[in-house]
């Protein structure tokens, strides 16, 4: 069994979001970077659990990013995984990224690919689906539970208005969200061993970026809260009805 977990670097959840160069670049000065929470808490941890259950499992982590993503991939290795691959490229286009991941997956002979449900920066929710199409594999989106019995996966996924339980033979791509696993904090042993785990750097395959970010924009600032006295909730309801007209 060979599992590939896709890892993204994102600004910390609490990072201040602002832009430079005439609103065309994210202002990264002073920003703390983290592993995309969905990749870390759910995709990576579930893959580690599968390896704990079956120690013959080979678990590789993959990121598409420049050298500055290495601290993030080391941090992921401290939580678990045998080795990491970094594709030396940077792009905001999901097709470009997915093409790189699909190429690594083809060459590495993986059986199972995990992604987080989306990244908290571009909010695309599209890498898993694209990779599965490029590989012509089945895709389970937005999984909340994942179990493996031999080469057959049982997955519960969120669908419109409910949940669906699926059975599917590997190979398979799964995007993971809350429910699949619980966050783990790396321990000292993990941190130490991560330093010596292999981190392979490969150059990207030729691919086109099909989209490009032209500019960013911040939403207009809120005018500030309008407080209504606690002894007059009816006034709040009147404002919502007559002024905000929301019902």
């Amino acid at each position: 069994m060979k599992i590939l977990v896709c890892i993204s670097k994102t600004p910390d959840t609490t990072a201040k979001i602002s832009f430079t160069q005439n609103n065309t670049k994210f202002a990264s000065d002073g920003v703390q970077w983290i592993i995309n929470p969905y990749d870390e808490w759910y995709a990576l941890v579930r893959a580690i659990e599968l390896k704990e259950k079956d120690p013959s499992t080979v678990l590789h982590l993959l990121t598409v990013g420049l050298a500055d993503t290495e601290p993030i991939i080391r941090k992921a290795l401290a939580i678990g995984g045998d080795e990491a691959i970094r594709v030396n490229a940077d792009s905001a286009d999901p097709f470009y990224i997915a093409t790189q991941i699909a190429d690594i997956a083809r060459q590495g002979g993986y059986d199972l690919i995990f992604t987080g449900k989306e990244t908290i920066d571009y909010n695309g929710s599209s890498i898993g689906g694209m990779v599965s199409e490029l590989l012509d594999w089945p895709y389970i989106s937005l999984a909340v539970k994942f179990d493996l019995n031999g080469s057959v996966a049982t997955v519960v996924r969120e669908i419109e208005g409910g949940e669906e339980t699926d059975e599917v033979s590997l190979p398979l791509v799964v995007s993971c969200q809350k429910g699949v696993a619980e966050q783990r904090i790396p321990n000292m042993k993990g941190i130490m061993s991560a330093r010596t785990k292999p981190l392979k750097v490969v150059e990207p395959v030729a691919a086109e970026a099909l989209t490009g970010i032209v500019s960013f924009e911040l939403p207009p600032a809120k005018a500030g809260v309008r407080l209504v006295p606690a002894d007059n909730p009816a006034e709040l309801i009147r404002l919502l009805h007559e002024e905000a007209k929301v019902f």
Partner: peptide, 13 residues
């Protein structure tokens, strides 16, 4: 983008 904290204008080519 950025989980509701900003917008991006993205060109499809």
């Amino acid at each position: 983008v950025f989980s509701g904290k900003a917008f991006a204008h993205v060109a499809i080519n």
